[in-house]
Write a protein that binds this DNA or RNA. Sequence first.
DNA 1: GTCTATATGGTGATAGAC
DNA 2: GTCTATCACCATATAGAC
Lengths: 194, 194
Amino acid sequence: MGRPPLVDDPRAEILREAARLFAQKGYAESSLNELAAAMKYSKGAIYNYFASKQEIYDAIIIATLKALYDSAASAVNPDDPAPERLRQFMMAHARCLEANYHAFVTMLVGYSGMANAALKDDALKLRDAHEGLLRQIISEGIADGTFRPVDVAMTGRAVLSLLSWMARWFRPDGPKSGEEIAADYYDLIVKGLA
Amino acid sequence: MGRPPLVDDPRAEILREAARLFAQKGYAESSLNELAAAMKYSKGAIYNYFASKQEIYDAIIIATLKALYDSAASAVNPDDPAPERLRQFMMAHARCLEANYHAFVTMLVGYSGMANAALKDDALKLRDAHEGLLRQIISEGIADGTFRPVDVAMTGRAVLSLLSWMARWFRPDGPKSGEEIAADYYDLIVKGLA
DNA sequence: GTCTATATGGTGATAGAC
DNA sequence: GTCTATCACCATATAGAC
């Protein structure tokens, strides 16, 4: 039998470290030399787990989108009224961003070309599923009269804009937690400014 | 006397074409060969107007931030009530994004490292001035009772999140103009969802 | 001012020993 | 599975003719 890996789960470790690096410097600006140095691996070892640099990036994006959708889907309780479900959706997003901070930043700031067509398709499906969940909440809120008759697509995009942009300015060691910020945003979007 | 330039304003032309390229592929993924080819210039000619690729990027960011601040400052009429000024601010942002679409995308998606420390400082000052303008509108709206007593910094960030994220999904040839979207967002943020 | 040709360095990826 | 050594390539940037 072969020699055991140096660490428990090399693939996961590589993805974690790569996300940290990509978030800091951007995808193209990060070299595999840096990645190898940061995790005390050699370039050769990395290529034993991933066929290319692009494959590492793709894996980060897919895993993060999947985590985002799963967190939203499991946080939203279908039996609750629409406003409460919207709150659950937003809180889950913020929690997920906080838990996968570097991956979210990578997704926001990095070059967004996915090489593998099948994976790109998966990514789009996950994003659509996630946004679809949100739109359904808004639609049902309008249908039962708890929300004003707003444009569903536009309003969904507004909610996702607030949450997505968090990756740009949020800091894990900042004064407010992700959930606190999501709660503030929920209040603002539901009650409005006036 | 020397030979005249091939085009009227080579520097501006280079910046325009570079923004288009950076927006499409990202900063690091774009090469000066591509840039030169796209504008039927040679690499050597470009280096006559900019000392480095980084200098081109920096110039795009500074010019865009300046245009954004100027457009907001000149659109907001100090004599109008806070809600109307907020509307003016948001509409100006959307107009500016539409008019400088590729530069806004470059600013959003590109690698954000500015090499020149002085320029980086300028960029931060412009951004702060722009955000300060927005916060003042919100503050005065709260002070005179037209807005609820919300957290000013948080609310300002929310408004800028909506507008900034537009660079990610807005398409100049899409069904709605920038101003129409800004108007929708204004309604949502002022009236709320409920 | 514009071009072609070139210097220089670092990148992603591979080969092959252990 | 991990490493070192190396390849082939393409990038930014420069030099110098016109």
